[in-house]
Design a protein around this nucleic acid. Structure first.
Lengths: 227, 227
DNA sequence: ACGGGACTTATTGTTGACAAAATGCGATAT
DNA sequence: ATATCGCATTTTGTCAACAATAAGTCCCGT
């Protein structure tokens, strides 16, 4: 009898992990608005768990900069802060560049094909105007070098700061305007295939830097707290 | 009457913060050896606190890669792993490069002088063969751009992964062999003073990459667990 | 002697309760 | 009416107990 060995790959269901994902996603998609107060007890009640795993999740989110805690006073969703987003964007760009640089030497043909396929889906989604699918395809594209470089530290840092960028994208741009031109992705693929690690890394960094103009528009349009 | 406003700058003494620092330092200086088992209760007894703040500290240390937890089974100090150290080193180099690149445009004369002074102390310590003081001066040197760039994400990431490198340095090299030539520091200062952000960033990255040879020697000499 | 299985033990994950502190409100005195 | 003092409430930080699970051990049967 095939006993369901569901614990083979994923170790064990941890409430704190579920809490982290749930709260993070709620912040990213705006369910929990910037500046909104976060109450341990309320969050626990919402998720049907106790305060402890909630607090551990909030701790991780604070390291990401998505949550701000004044000890003994209150916990809030971080207000939209241009500086913080720009910081996260710098770090994220650097990590993607690093991932590409380290991945190129060992990049297989299959992985290159995965990138090409993702970019094709990306292009198709853009033509259709399907923002959600485009974002997903873009994610898949950039996930290839990150997975291929097998650098755990890079993965950790990206896991930490990517949600900060996602929140901005989703709150301020239902369509991804300047970000991620298909041609740019093609160039990254070509440089990877050619084995030019430095060139590919720089191209990837430049690709992620295209978020920058969005930030300036954010800075003009919404100066953090409309005091 | 001058009421002691000791809480003006530092918010409030958090046990989890003390626990984090204590356990982190114990791992870095070898008091807690690689592979050693970490028991919540024991650590709490050692620090005179309960398990809760200890567990929060261990959570942060796990994100750094200094601690490894198998959920429901045990928690150990991460064994010496060349790959993990190399990963942390890549990320750290990239972060220092980023810090320098972003700091250069706004770098004041006073800050440049601080770097020069730190490098002078560094050189003097090296001549005396004072490894501890040299390491401290090296830290002070590199801390200037990190503080100047005011990038919170960079700070967070460095705070996370620098201890991984420190542990290797302290466990395997009482003297800092190849790392940190005074001349290299001088070159970084010169490029910063000249306003060459890109050049300074690359020089800083190269400086931190000098850790690489130490890792290969580690790979040869001690293959993780001497089974 | 060897293998298998149940039991004990030890450790982690989670829960609910306790403690301390800061905020907000209201009463009071001026 | 306003400012100040005091109290109640709320929220976070910490603690101690409970639950669940995995490892180690001992006993028993073959």
């Amino acid at each position: 009898m095939p006993v369901p060995q569901s614990r083979g790959l994923v170790s064990r269901p941890l409430l704190r992990e579920d809490a982290y994902r749930a709260i993070r996603d709620a912040i990213v998609d705006g369910t929990l608005a910037p500046g909104e107060r976060l109450n341990d007890t309320d969050l626990g009640a919402w998720l049907g768990i106790s305060r402890t795993p909630v607090r551990e999740a909030l701790g991780r989110l604070e390291q990401s900069g998505l949550v701000l805690t004044k000890p003994g006073r209150h916990t809030i969703v971080s207000p939209l802060d241009v500086r913080a987003v720009r910081d996260a964007q710098s770090v994220t760009s650097a990590m993607h560049a690093l991932a590409v640089r380290e991945a190129v030497p060992g990049l297989s043909a299959a992985e290159l094909d995965t990138m090409r396929a993702a970019n094709a889906r990306f292009a198709a989604a853009l033509r259709r105007g399907d923002a959600g699918e485009a974002l997903a395809a873009d994610d898949d594209f950039h996930a290839v070098p990150v997975a291929a470089c097998a650098n755990q530290a890079v993965r950790t840092v990206l896991e930490q700061f990517t949600p900060v960028l996602r929140r901005i994208e989703r709150l301020h741009f239902s369509s991804l305007s300047g970000r991620g031109s298909v041609a740019h992705h093609d160039r990254i693929i070509a440089l990877c295939a050619a084995g030019d690690a430095e060139g590919a890394a720089e191209a990837s960094r430049a690709n992620w830097e295209t978020l920058a103009p969005l930030l300036t528009s954010l800075a003009d349009g919404e100066p953090g707290e409309p005091a």
